[in-house]
Design a protein around this nucleic acid. Structure first.
Lengths: 303, 303
DNA sequence: AATAATGATAAGCATTACTTATGAATATAA
DNA sequence: TTATATTCATAAGTAATGCTTATCATTATT
């Protein structure tokens, strides 16, 4: 059986005339006749009683044509569903982000994506890089915003922006006297770091040329907010990525900030996704929306 | 799009593996792959996100495969309906009969057809030959039991039985003295006839070598019962076909009967149908059932 | 008797779908 | 690291299916 056959019998039952039915189906009358005959043979049922002058629908034909109508209607729904789904900017989208980005990027992004991607249903998840990468590979996430390029060759990225690192230190700390702070000026023994697994921990250690053997502090914060609060409590100094600097929160909280003055003291932020992800256009659009709302403190790569 | 394509995507969504899905569909993996790719192109939607190691159903794919399941289910119903309809002995059947047969043939026939054709839904209609023939040609009837062969070349017949004519006359009528009554013995001026349009009127006149100019009586009965009752009331004599003789009704009703002793004094009864009627096997079976219950007074042609 | 209408049939061509063989990419095992 | 296996995609050739035009057979209509 064939979907076109169903259209043929529907057309014949409507016109009760093979020639006109064929015309309506944009085929020749012999084509339609032979297809119907073949279908009747396949079903073992005569659908139309016909002689050289008239066409009648048989009892069995009536039942079967009613079902054919149903089937064609469902098949029409398939095309409709496809048409709806064809817009890559619509549907569900599961986005993951690391904890050192999510709180600073998402508030703006949610607002802007509502305007730019109104028919997109966004779901967010916050987790560390490794688990986000696993989820990407398994298909549990569609994309993630990460600060490290992917290791798997199945993943690809859109580069979003470079985010400088800033020092946060208590008011009246020695660092306050520096006009320009560089990593070599940092008191590494006072450095407060995130817990293991957080990529920014590695990035901070990296920029300060520390390795795990150098660790002096046993603080294992899981958020930059915690680190900043600890600095305010004069527990040490820390680094944060630029986006974590909220001027209103910093001012009057007992901490001071300076941008790290090294060329390499930044991290690159990527939108990571499976190469096989079908809605690539959405990824591009989404990257645009991300970059739209970026503050002056970061250096956008796109647009 | 193609029904087989729907089966392919259903299979892939079940196995999440093109090779196994192809195996389940009894096609080679490249065949299945290329058909799915073509369908995706036609719909403009990626149904499966796949790389060299894994297959995932996309959001749009999920919706569309659900609809494909629906469509396949309806199409399954088409095959089921065909299987049910394939039995030519089932379904509706519209049978027409003339008034000089219906009352005598149907009671038995209904009983016997219930046993022999249990899944047949019979609808009866009683009318005169011309209108039954029209209904046959227009498809309003599937068959008719008639006493005249059809004129249209679109109709065909199964011969059922030959039905002799009998004379009915009042007790103590002159005819009572005949051992064997022949048509030439009939008092044609006393002959009571059915209304015009009834074929038995013509047959009776024919056998008596009368034509419309010979009419003396203006009686226009529409049933044989009326004629018999008129004979009982000594209004004249009449002819009836053999099946109209119900011994229990005749005895003691003031009439007497004799079989007409002419070779040509009978009529042949046909099951008439369109040549194009698809359930020919049903017609044969039905003819058998008719002949089963015939009384000894008629001469069956079949079986 | 001639003409028109209508579905069936025939022959040949175009399209479609399938098969087998092979490729490319990537896991897994040695 | 290198070899092997897995898996989907691609290629080339073939089989099948469906279509077109031309024609036939039958039956109304003029």
């Amino acid at each position: 059986m064939n979907i076109r056959d169903l259209e043929y019998i529907k057309s014949v039952s409507k016109h009760l005339h093979f020639g006109e039915a064929a015309l309506a189906c944009n085929v020749s009358q012999p084509a339609l006749s032979s297809q119907i005959k073949k279908l009747e043979t396949e079903l073992g049922v005569t659908l139309f009683e016909r002689d050289n002058r008239s066409v009648r629908v048989t009892d069995a034909g009536r039942d079967i044509i009613a079902l054919a109508d149903d089937a064609l209607s469902v098949i029409g729904n398939i095309y409709s569903a496809a048409e709806t789904a064809r817009d890559p900017l619509s549907g569900e989208f599961r986005l993951g982000t690391i904890p050192t980005i999510a709180p600073y990027l998402f508030p703006n992004f949610v607002t802007q994506s509502r305007a730019a991607l109104p028919s997109l249903k966004l779901q967010f998840r916050e987790d560390i890089t490794d688990r986000l990468n696993d989820s990407l590979l398994s298909g549990d996430l569609d994309a993630a915003i990460l600060a490290t390029p992917p290791e798997s060759s199945k993943l690809d990225v859109i580069e979003l922006y470079d985010e400088p690192f800033w020092v946060i230190f208590p008011e009246h700390h020695d660092l306050q006297s520096f006009k320009r702070v560089r990593t070599k000026d940092l008191p590494t023994d006072e450095l407060l770091l995130l817990a293991e697994g957080h990529c920014f921990r590695d990035q901070a250690m990296d920029v300060c040329r520390l390795d795990s053997s150098n660790e002096t502090y046993t603080v294992r914060a899981t958020s930059l907010e915690t680190l900043i609060n600890m600095v305010a409590a004069r527990q040490g100094v820390t680094l944060v990525p630029a986006m974590a600097l909220n001027p209103r929160r910093i001012s009057g909280s007992g901490v001071d900030t300076q941008k790290l003055n090294d060329k390499s003291a930044y991290r690159r932020i990527y939108l990571t996704y499976r190469k096989s992800f079908p809605r690539q256009a959405l990824l591009q659009k989404m990257a645009d929306v991300f970059c739209e709302g970026l503050p002056e403190t970061v250096k956008r790569i796109r647009g």
